[in-house]
């Protein structure tokens, strides 16, 4: 069983860390995982994305043309990756940062107002965690408990005061369940 997830957003939205956190949780639970960022001549304020592949066997290609899931944190990411999601796959959209709905009908879509939810719980930097919560509620390969454990294990100690907020952000996002493909 293999899942490929692309996390994409503006630099600073936490797309790369969201992918890393899932990678840590996968590793800690005995799975194989590959995290690879786009590393072109990146520009401040530009886009950032990473591909995470989680599998129970040796992982081949670190990149896929058609991922099983995409987390689109802004409009350019939605425009770029909506057409690429595997049919039957999952698209998580940060609806706070887009002005259109996805048009595909052969994939599952969850529209998550992640910026608003993050601000509601008190810290807009939790946007990425809200979206990870939504991702894993719809692609149940890692549990809330695994993610909380991964945060405890791998977040530097100086950030541990943010742990409860991160847990809450994951749970807020998990409330957004995509409708099945019609």
């Amino acid at each position: 069983m293999q899942n490929e997830i692309i996390f994409s957003g503006f630099g600073g939205q936490g797309a790369l860390f969201a992918g890393q956190l899932c990678s840590y949780a996968a590793m800690d639970n005995g799975l194989e995982v590959t995290w690879i960022p786009s590393y072109g001549p990146e520009m401040r304020g530009g886009t950032a994305n990473c591909t995470v592949i989680i599998s129970n066997e040796e992982i081949g290609s670190p990149l896929v043309r058609n991922p099983s899931a995409v987390v689109a944190m802004n409009l350019p990411s939605l425009d770029k990756y909506e057409p690429l999601v595997k049919p039957g796959g999952l698209l998580i959209v940060n609806s706070s940062m887009v002005n259109r709905a996805p048009t595909r009908t052969d994939i599952r879509v969850a529209m998550v107002p992640a910026n608003e939810l993050a601000e509601k719980i008190g810290d807009k930097r939790m946007t990425n965690m809200v979206l990870v919560g939504a991702l894993l509620a719809n692609l149940p390969i890692l549990t809330q408990e695994m993610m909380e454990k991964a945060l405890q294990e791998h977040l530097p100690a100086r950030h541990h005061r943010f742990l409860p907020l991160n847990y809450q952000a994951l749970r807020e996002g998990a409330a957004y369940i995509a409708a099945p493909v019609a």
Partner: peptide, 10 residues
């Protein structure tokens, strides 16, 4: 190569 250098894996 750049791919193996930049990727993270366990």
């Amino acid at each position: 190569d750049g791919s193996i250098g930049q990727m993270m894996e366990p």
